[in-house]
Nucleic acid binder design. Sequence first.
DNA 1: AGCCGCGTTGTCATCGATGTCAAGCCTCGA
DNA 2: TCGAGGCTTGACATCGATGACAACGCGGCT
Lengths: 374, 374
Amino acid sequence: MRERVTLRDVAHVAAVSAKTVSRVVNGDAHVTPATRARVQQAIADLGFQPNLVARSLRVGRADVVGLVVESLADPFFARLTSAVEQAAHERGLAVMVSSVGNREPERESVIVESLLVRQVAGLIVAPMAQSHAYLAGTGRRTPIVFIDRLPEGLVSDAVLVDDLAAGEMATRHLLDHGHRRVAFLGSELRNPTTRLRLAGYRRALATHGLADEESLVAVGAGTAAEARAAAEQLLAAPQPPTAIFSSNMRCSLGLVPLLHGRGRTDVAVVSFDDFAMADSLVPAVTVLDHDPEVIGRAAAERLFRRLDDLDAPPETVTVPVRLVPRGSGELRPDDREVVPDHDRPQDRLQDMARHGGEGRTSTMTSLNAQEGAR
Amino acid sequence: MRERVTLRDVAHVAAVSAKTVSRVVNGDAHVTPATRARVQQAIADLGFQPNLVARSLRVGRADVVGLVVESLADPFFARLTSAVEQAAHERGLAVMVSSVGNREPERESVIVESLLVRQVAGLIVAPMAQSHAYLAGTGRRTPIVFIDRLPEGLVSDAVLVDDLAAGEMATRHLLDHGHRRVAFLGSELRNPTTRLRLAGYRRALATHGLADEESLVAVGAGTAAEARAAAEQLLAAPQPPTAIFSSNMRCSLGLVPLLHGRGRTDVAVVSFDDFAMADSLVPAVTVLDHDPEVIGRAAAERLFRRLDDLDAPPETVTVPVRLVPRGSGELRPDDREVVPDHDRPQDRLQDMARHGGEGRTSTMTSLNAQEGAR
DNA sequence: AGCCGCGTTGTCATCGATGTCAAGCCTCGA
DNA sequence: TCGAGGCTTGACATCGATGACAACGCGGCT
């Protein structure tokens, strides 16, 4: 129930000035060992703990990083947050998290500003808002690292996924499983992400010496329903694809139920982005997945380097995606039968028993692997 | 790229004192409408934003709540964090999260102190450490709400789950499905949580007019392996149970793989705590589940009330648990055959299509429901 | 011996906001 | 007309730490 102890109290007990105590606390070299010892003794006796808010005011910034994501409840962002928090902790920084929610992207600016007024040293933002004009003059005072998407017309540090390589990887995966008619399902081409993934798709085709067939590329689907319709068209074509690369989650949410509803689970599918239930369907959906731990740490480290050198030119870090084979992407063009599924739960059971709720594995192979609550 | 704007700058432009600007910013009533307007104009012109760090120093506390959990990557804590963050945001508070990690519970004190020195207004802690002596005098200065477990020898605000009711609910669920020989599998009785759940189990038996049979209660299993052994004993008994209430996750991690390995999926199971894969097994495991959103919000609101009245006596909030029927708990004593499983994924598919990746449903029925990454 | 230089320590102002207290002004009633 | 009381506004100190700068003491040098 001790009263708050300040530098001055310690100074008084150690018979030195507050400034000297400050030097000891901050590890300043210019202090005599004898003085240092006396001060440290006083600190210990009084149980002094520096007030970081006061320090923050004086030095003009808090030793805190702000993190802005869409939703903390989303496992992707949860793991990202965890990675950022670990990296920050190693550097002695605290983390303030805020979620924007998926309803109103405009809330992003409010959230960001609520962190700025708290003088965070830096921000990591997974952008949702359309415009980032509100960030106009902020960058210099408070560095920002963007995740996953670079806001329009802003040059800034960012951590992006390698969409080109990802598109190529997905497509090659299907080609390697014997498919020759691989379709591309994507949303609007305005989206640079989609463009890059499509480019990767084409590059993989070219590498395999295949022509890029116009009729196999279905883009423009903005919603799951539109994606479903686009997929229906693909399947109804005279020479339908035997495999489909669904280049984002929304598309998959249209495509996959369609295939299951029609009993067309013989069509091979690789989906970008993991999505709910992707691994409990039969066959489970092979996905290209971002590794949130890798992205989070990369973003944190990019930010730290920026804090150490505010004047270096902006840098973009590109992280690879992983392909998580689960069944749907490993179907061959002549497969008419689905892999029996009753061995899959068994596999997982063994996995579960092996990990036994004790340690967390450092690299998880399945995105959906999750520890039980508590 | 504007320089930082302070109260004084605004005061200068509006030709008033800094104090008056402060009054306007804080909505103090004692300001002439004319003055107020002039000040607000100046604030808008200069783009002034108050420096919350300075305010925090002055008032002695930051408008921040600290949250300490085991792991942010754990979906339970992720959703809890999300709920806390939302509640805090509604009150204008930011949230600093820190995770302790499951390796060294002693790190808890370091984490908590790193938040205290940042002058957080209050803390929400899911305790892991054995001793909380380090919190000795803290409570008065910085209120703490504990989640799920009350630290030894500390009277404090807390949010606990209703273990008694939960034990009763699980057991009654099994009894209602026709079972008469229901076993209880639990860890050490030293653990008050286990004691309460066992009491609930007994109460349900009593309500159904059943005797409490000693041989059906297996407690003391500290690890999954021990739980497995205990379950083996139960099943090998002359009159084995037809249903088992596994009273915590560790027990379930011993019990469930055993049943599956032995092909004894005819034994009904209700498990406390959701766990990895619980819903993708066949049959999926019926669980009693904490609702992290409810717990998080309850903790936040308890904390806010405490902030409003530091002298009220400590209060414990008890939240109910939910029973999530998934199959294993709905088996009847005479069931020899497992529900065919291929319709379950279909159900989910429809579910998935219906929600279509658009809105987040406000109350999720399945704990494991999760949005895809991004 | 006296001066220089270096390393230690202290004084003072400051970061930006707010609590305290009082001054100034206005209104109303005696 | 004058004083009391209320409201608006401002001057000043303060929260706790740190940066700039100065003073001090001591050893080495000429």
